[in-house]
Each structure stands twice: as structure tokens, then as C-alpha cells.
Write a protein that binds this DNA or RNA. Structure first.
Lengths: 209, 209
DNA sequence: GTCTATAGTCGGATAGAC
DNA sequence: GTCTATCCGACTATAGAC
């Protein structure tokens, strides 16, 4: 028991420890610098340990990256699902889509280094790592397709738009905000209103207003 | 004169040669594999020469990447400007925007490895290389802002949308197609119609149809 | 669970022959 | 204009002490 206590104290000096702490700093670095620029040495240094010590927690760099990618999707998926399912029954298409868009943008821009790291580095990681992340991605995409299909069946969305295509357009547009979003210029909350409005109503001036 | 002739023949064996040929294969590789995965050795091999020989044409890897990035923007900029300026005077907002969107998507998805390489790797290259590409980018962005502002002043676009913001949304959405576009599933031409329609009119089912 | 030390690989870049 | 040969640094990963 005294041995355990000593161990815990001796770890207490460093900021983030353990497998989870390593993933936290890795996600942050990947988000900020991309995949290629972040070496195991950088991750270790940010976690307050030496590079070799990472191999106690992980078997390879790929394993670290894969874990970050998976968590990134899980976070945004949970956020979006909960936001939509929390709406009162009979909520209109506008409000439903706005809730989903808002949840996605908040996870991406406000909440999670994991989600933003995923969006930023997915196209940079080795093929095997991308493949490992695909099932998790598919589940999130299915959640969006279900929402959009429901709205279309209710007659709220144009009947001639392809759901898969619409989802690709929407998520692609939302993820692209990562490249230029600046919290000093406006909130993710305000952004989500703009995106929902543009996608729902377009940008054309209308006579019926 | 005979010496020149001999030189030209002796080069004729390899597929792409000279500075331009190197840039062509580099753009293709960057487009396909991203920045980090493409070494000078790979570029040299694809060009049919040895890695060291690249330094006759370029001073560094950064110089190659910077050249690819600049050409990439110039191509899409020229394409978009020409498409819009070729329209008859008095062309409506719908047709103008559709022309600009179509030109951007064609350059990105059909025509140019340089443009697609730019979109794909811009976020992966060293900061100094990004900075070098900024002036060229700014010029292209200004072209879009001018078009959108004109349409807004004509009363065709909603008066409350911020032009810069709208341009970021639009170009971001268009560039994101690079991640999933599959020519076997549809043409860039068809895509541009869909994007123009969604951005102009939205996806909501309307009473006035 | 973290350390030091190091093996092994691959990258960008340079020098000098042809 | 291209070659061969090579330097040097950085990276992932491993081995063994503590």
C-alpha cells in the first residue's frame, strides 16, 4: 500500500499521464500540426515522458493515431445523436437540421481535439489506419442518412435530392470550417445558424419575404 | 547545332523531362498521396531521373511544392475568371454562379493535378510554403468576392449575408468534393448543377413550386 | 511505468565525375 | 542535365536497467 502511494505521488508531478493523457496530447498536436509533423518524440515531450516510454502504452504510432481517429468520430456522433434525440416529438425539419449541424460544429470547433484531429489528418494517415477508422465513420454517416431520410419522407426536403449526396455536401461543408474558423470572429453557435439557413433556404433573394 | 540535336534526342527516351515535366509528376503524386508520403526519390523515379538530379532544376523540395501550389491556384483562377467573363452581359445570378462553380469544380476534379494537389496538401506543407502561396490565393479569393458582391448589389443575393463568409462556405464545400468525388458515379458538370441549386435555393421543399 | 541507449531506416541535400 | 556516392539528421522501434 505504501508502495502504491509512492508511485502515485511520483507520477503526480507531470501534467497528463497514462494512456488517456497521452491520447489527449496526441490529439491536440495532430489537430494543430497535422500528421506528418507530429513525431513520437513531440507527443512524448508534450506528455512529459520520453519517446521510448510510449511503447509501454501503445504498440506503434499507428495504434495511437487510430485511437485518436476513432474517439474523434465517437465524440461527434454521440453529440449529434443526443442533440437530435433530445428534440420534442414533431419538431420541424428546420429545427432538427439546425440541431444536428450545431452539434457537429460544436464538436469540431469547440469541444473536441479528437474530432478536429480526425477531420484534419484523416487524409494524411497510412491507408491501413484509414481503413481501421472506416466502420466508426460509417456508423456516423448512417446516423445522418437516417435523419435526412426521415425529413425527406415527411415531405420537408425536396424529393429529388439524393440523400447520400446531400450528406456528403453537408458534412464536407461543415468540416471545411476547420480551415478558417476563428473563435474571435464568431461562435460555432452562430456559424451553425448560418449554415442551416443557407442549406435550407439558399442565398437567393426571394419575392415571398 | 548538331550538339543541340543530339541533346534533344538523348532526352527523348524518358517520358516527362525538364523542369515542367518534374512539376507535372510531382503534382500528380502530391494529389494522389499527399505531401508527407511523397519523397524526392519518388518524384525523381516517376520523372525517370535520379533524386540528386532534381537539384539541377530546383533548390529544395520546398521550391517544388511551392511551384505546384502556385500553378494550382492560377489554373483554377484563370478557369473561373474566363468562364464568368465569357457570359453575355446581363446574365442572371443563377447562371453566373453556376458558371463560376462549374469552372472551379472542373479545374479541381477534371482538369488539373495542380489544383487538386493544392487543395489536398495545402494544410500539410510547412508554414513558409503556405505563406508563399498566400498572395496567389488572395487574388483568387478577391475574384470570388467581386462576383458575389456584384450579384448582391444587383439585388439577386440576400442582403444580410456576409460576402467573405459566403465565399468561405462555397469554396470550402466545393473543395471538399475532392475527398469523395468518383467520376464513375457522375460528372463534375452534373455536380456543379447540384451545388449551384442547393446554394441558391436550398433543400427545403417549398410551397411556391 | 519510465528511463537510457541504440539499432535500423529513410529523408533532404551536397560534391564531383561524365 | 544527369549520374553516383555520400553526409547528416530525424524518425520509429527495441532492449534492458531501474
Amino acid at each position: 500500500m505504501s508502495e502504491l502511494a509512492v508511485k502515485q505521488v511520483s507520477q503526480g508531478v507531470r501534467s497528463p499521464v497514462g494512456r488517456e493523457g497521452v491520447l489527449d496530447v496526441a490529439a491536440k498536436l495532430f489537430r494543430e500540426q497535422g500528421y506528418g509533423s507530429v513525431s513520437l518524440r513531440k507527443i512524448a515531450e508534450a506528455a512529459g515522458i520520453k519517446a521510448g516510454s510510449l511503447y509501454y502504452h501503445f504498440g506503434s504510432k499507428d495504434e495511437i493515431v487510430a485511437a485518436v481517429l476513432d474517439v474523434g468520430i465517437q465524440v461527434v456522433h454521440d453529440s449529434m445523436r443526443q442533440a437530435v434525440s433530445a428534440l420534442p416529438e414533431g419538431t420541424g425539419a428546420e429545427a432538427s437540421l439546425h440541431a444536428a449541424i450545431g452539434a457537429h460544429l460544436r464538436a469540431l470547433l469547440d469541444v473536441s481535439d479528437y474530432t478536429s484531429a480526425n477531420v484534419r489528418i484523416f487524409g494524411q494517415v497510412p491507408q491501413s489506419v484509414r481503413d481501421a477508422n472506416l466502420p466508426t465513420r460509417r456508423a456516423y454517416e448512417a446516423e445522418w442518412d437516417a435523419l435526412l431520410s426521415r425529413l425527406q419522407q415527411e415531405g420537408a426536403l425536396k424529393s429529388d435530392v439524393d440523400i447520400r449526396h446531400l450528406r456528403l455536401m453537408l458534412i464536407g461543408a461543415l468540416n471545411a470550417t476547420l480551415d478558417w474558423f476563428d473563435p474571435a470572429r464568431g461562435s460555432a453557435e452562430a456559424l451553425s445558424r448560418t449554415y442551416a439557413d443557407v442549406f435550407l433556404n439558399g442565398i437567393l433573394e426571394r419575392q415571398d419575404t
